[in-house]
């Protein structure tokens, strides 16, 4: 049962799995930020006469269907995958959590109407929502960010509201109300500090969903459009290499998996505050 715990500063501990996951996430964040400095070749540069080249010293993860360096393309792809997903998840969760807490504290018709509406929105399967919007409006990066934010706001709302409803039944909220406090104080000072941990875990989970949705849409050719390419688009453009097991198909997928699995593992192994001081 026991995994070794590694002490961190400020009475926090993390186990080895969580630490590894954290490192992978930090790695991809760095890659997204410094892709142009890290990439050995340009994104569009055709560097190999052969296409679907194998792994070699020169091209560590092979070349793609045009003979471009896959490593560079994956490093640049991180920008789109991580950047778009991060923007979406931020919009979705800030909106969702704020509305969720407000609904829980206010109650009444505001809560009922908002909950009904967002629940209804939530019962459109996410990929389908994406397909319909792309069909209607066309695909561009702002449209992708906003669409995915709309798709994941209801879930974030529902989650935050459920947590806030639990906290809202606590006597300290009643005490604050009896004191005469207003809704903004109750939300910001009494509820938020008590749900922030689970909310962050939920943000992580939703980030994973968004990465997967974005990759899926791009894979269908409806997400990030050429010449730009996120990891999902990289798989799509190289799918014809699949029958001969070209590394160009597998490595973008592996990049996605390494990011999403790490986020999930980090959520399951979040740093814990050590409770007993005598330890």
């Amino acid at each position: 049962m026991m995994t070794r715990a590694i002490p961190l500063p400020l009475h926090y501990r993390i186990n080895i799995v969580g630490l590894l996951a954290l490192c992978v996430i930090l790695f991809w964040t760095m890659v997204a930020l410094f892709a142009s400095q890290l990439a050995p070749h340009g994104v569009g540069e055709i560097v190999d006469l052969d296409y679907f080249g194998p792994m070699s010293r020169q091209f560590p993860v092979g070349t793609d269907y045009l003979g471009r360096d896959m490593l560079s393309r994956i490093l640049f792809g991180a920008r789109y995958t991580v950047g778009i997903s991060l923007a979406s998840v931020t919009i979705a969760c800030v909106t969702g959590v704020t509305l969720g807490m407000a609904a829980a504290v206010t109650g009444g018709w505001f809560d009922t109407a908002l909950s009904r509406f967002l629940d209804a929105l939530n019962s459109i399967p996410s990929k389908l929502f994406g397909l319909v919007v792309v069909a209607g409006v066309g695909s561009s990066i702002p449209v992708l960010i906003l669409t995915m934010a709309v798709i994941y706001t209801p879930g974030s709302y529902r989650f935050a509201r459920a947590l806030a409803v639990n906290v809202n039944t606590m006597d300290f909220i009643t005490v604050a109300r009896a004191r005469g406090e207003g809704v903004p104080y109750i939300i910001g000072s009494e509820i938020l500090p008590n749900i922030i941990g689970p909310v962050f875990a939920d943000v992580g989970l939703r980030f994973v969903f968004i990465v997967l949705l974005l990759s899926g849409l791009s894979f269908l050719g409806l997400g990030v459009q050429p010449p730009d390419a996120d990891w999902g688009a990289l798989v799509r453009e190289n799918i014809s290499g699949l029958p001969f097991g070209a590394p160009a198909v597998m490595f973008p997928s592996i990049a996605i998996a390494s990011l999403t699995i790490s986020v999930n593992l980090l959520i399951d192994n979040l740093p814990k505050k050590t409770r007993d001081r005598s330890a």
Partner: peptide
Amino acid sequence: TIAVISVPEFMVATTAVLLFAVH
């Protein structure tokens, strides 16, 4: 299960192809 949930469906599909068809 975490691993399968964390990866896109197309990765499960391509892995299956690589395993059962290619190898």
